[in-house]
Write a protein that binds this DNA or RNA. Structure first.
Lengths: 351, 351
DNA sequence: CTGCGGGTTGACAGCGCTGTCAAACGGGGG
DNA sequence: CCCCCGTTTGACAGCGCTGTCAACCCGCAG
């Protein structure tokens, strides 16, 4: 069987040297068609596939892409027994792209809070020697991480970066504009008293979404009322509590835009608990389009963030074949992917 | 920096041979405490970490665990733009365990439907040389896969296997009993006319859950009415359609047990659309405890499947340190993890 | 007819580790 | 005091590839 087939076997079968086999496999120039042909035949016949370890040990390219996953977040998910939808979609995109480019995907936990982060990271990079790594928010902007990667000469793609916009490959979505769009959608439905349940201000996504919310209000001549802007922590619970506080106000809002779906779902439940019909008495909008957004009653109006596409784009730009083809100008290392406003049942005019 | 630190650097610093460093790092016997000490010091000072490729190339252990992911399923998720909660939780468990054991996690797509599956797999195993692989349902029982793994001498853990219960490490949950439990819960609430929306019969999980459902009915002296048993395909849509058909029956059921949460959520929505209050007029139960189960109104009664724990257990049993400590008796290669019945708002007595 | 240059191929030395085997060491019995 | 044997350590050969460099081939200009 294919187990144990080495480059020597292929070379012997094709009657050439191992170097020639290597050349064909790597698509190097100056190989005669005849040789290429016979090598390819031998490879196919033997079901040969190059050994990953040998390749990365001998050469400079390892064909490994690492998805760096926040350890603290993972432990939290572990404790709660829940999955991580964002990460799952991200990985989906990476996997699809890796398959195309014949790359391998490795997932690594990183303790971004560790005092030894710098050392941990560089040791990890030395151990695995990845060809590229993919960074996710909010760590796409982590200065130590970027520095270590630069020092190690490892290419990296940053999903949703906000700072240092000249470093690495950047894959972005216009969160500010998306938030503005969904807020405008609410305004156009006739709402004049809009509330926002923001995310933790440590996340730049939270800030941008809030900015978009406020910008939409201003553009439509509505005042920004600080008492209608609450800070949650991206959890269902905080959405629930947020809406409870909002509904306790003397002058209730008629529409709520939550900075993510989990909080919006919490708000939805809070509204139901308070006996308010949605969207008759209160409109609720979210952000992310998590699976649950579709399953709630009513289904949640939200912004569909193309996480998988962003990840695929990230991986694509880390693969050297493509990278080599384009100028290394830093402008071209940036890609902005389109979002989508998903209007569903949770938003509408007042009944 | 730590980048580029090799075993030679450590050996030089500690004033010993590279082999001694290797011995200490591998925890081999017959190493004097003094040597161990000085090597450990040097390792710490230099921030050294062994190179993965070199290790797996030279030795027999690669420290790599592969999660084999169904390619067809992944493409489907890719198309729909949705994440995969099951996979996400699985990975969570694997990651947590890999971190403990200092293992690496690699994710590989496998086209289980390919005619060349056998060859693809063995080429993949030859290329990566993983120390172990983790198989998920319904592929935990795939005979070709098991054969190739056996031939390649790669250890494997099977999540939720149903056949060949003497091969590999088996991590199971008593699906049948769980389904019986949740059905009994419905019966104890006073329901006598129970329906079941089953999963595709190709999945053994579907069969087991159905068996559990029927067993509970029989044990309580209720007849199994085939007209109340429908087959869905695990999607929200099919749950919705299923409940519509059930509610169109002359004699409606008062409780529905769906074989997974997505279908149960669909049923919930179908009930709402038909103007039925849940659980006042219809009780709905699911299976899996996906995130959405908590967010629906009312929250879904379901079986909490400890996917992450199962994955962690799988990884744990693939790690040789532990494996070596216990007898290789095939009985001890099996672990059954406990499920949990999560009673929430979607089930109750008739109003 | 000889020599030169570009295109093509192969020999060989590592990459950083582990496994094998032998050397060195040290303690107890004869 | 020497020998034997178990313990501790090190020298060295690969693992399966890629990178470097040299050898070889050919056609064409000189």
């Amino acid at each position: 069987m294919a187990a144990g087939v080495t480059i020597y076997d292929v070379a012997a079968r094709a009657g050439v040297s191992i170097k020639s086999v290597s050349r064909v496999l790597n698509g190097e120039a100056n190989v005669s068609p005849a040789l290429r042909e016979s090598v390819n035949t031998a490879v196919a016949e033997l079901g040969y596939r190059r050994n990953l370890s040998a390749r990365s040990l001998a050469g400079s390219s390892s064909s490994i892409i690492i998805a760096m996953v926040d350890e603290a977040l993972t432990i939290e998910h572990w404790r709660s027994g829940r999955g991580n939808d964002y990460l799952s979609r991200l990985e989906l995109g990476l996997l699809m792209e890796c398959r195309q480019a014949d790359y391998y995907l490795m997932v690594e936990l990183v303790d971004y809070g560790a005092a030894t982060l710098r050392r941990d990271l560089s040791a990890m990079l030395a151990a695995i020697r990845p060809e590229g790594v993919v960074l996710t928010p909010p760590n796409s902007d982590h200065p130590v991480v970027l520095d270590v990667l630069d020092e190690a000469g490892v290419a990296y793609a940053r999903i949703g970066p906000e700072r240092d916009l000249d470093r690495g490959v950047r894959i972005r979505m216009d969160e500010r504009q998306a938030a503005e769009d969904i807020t405008r959608h609410l305004i156009e439905l006739g709402h004049r008293r809009l509330a926002h349940i923001a995310g933790p201000s440590a996340y730049s996504a939270s800030r941008l979404r809030r900015e978009g919310f406020e910008a939409a209000l201003r553009k439509h001549g509505l005042a920004v009322d600080e008492s209608l802007i609450l800070e949650g922590d991206f959890t269902f619970q905080s959405g629930l509590q947020g809406v409870e506080r909002l509904l306790a106000l003397a002058e209730r809002p008629t529409a709520v835009f939550a900075a993510n779906d989990d909080m919006a779902l919490g708000a939805l439940q809070g509204a139901a608990a308070a006996g308010l019909s949605v969207p008759g008495a209160l409109s609720v909008a979210g952000f992310d389009d998590t699976p649950s957004a579709l399953f709630s009653t009513p289904a949640l109006t939200t912004i569909r963030q193309p996480v998988a596409e962003m990840a695929a784009a990230a991986a694509r730009r880390l693969v050297p074949t493509l990278r080599g083809e384009m100028p290394r100008s830093s402008d071209l290392n940036e890609e902005t992917v389109p979002y989508q406003l998903m209007v569903r049942g949770s938003t509408g005019p007042l009944a």
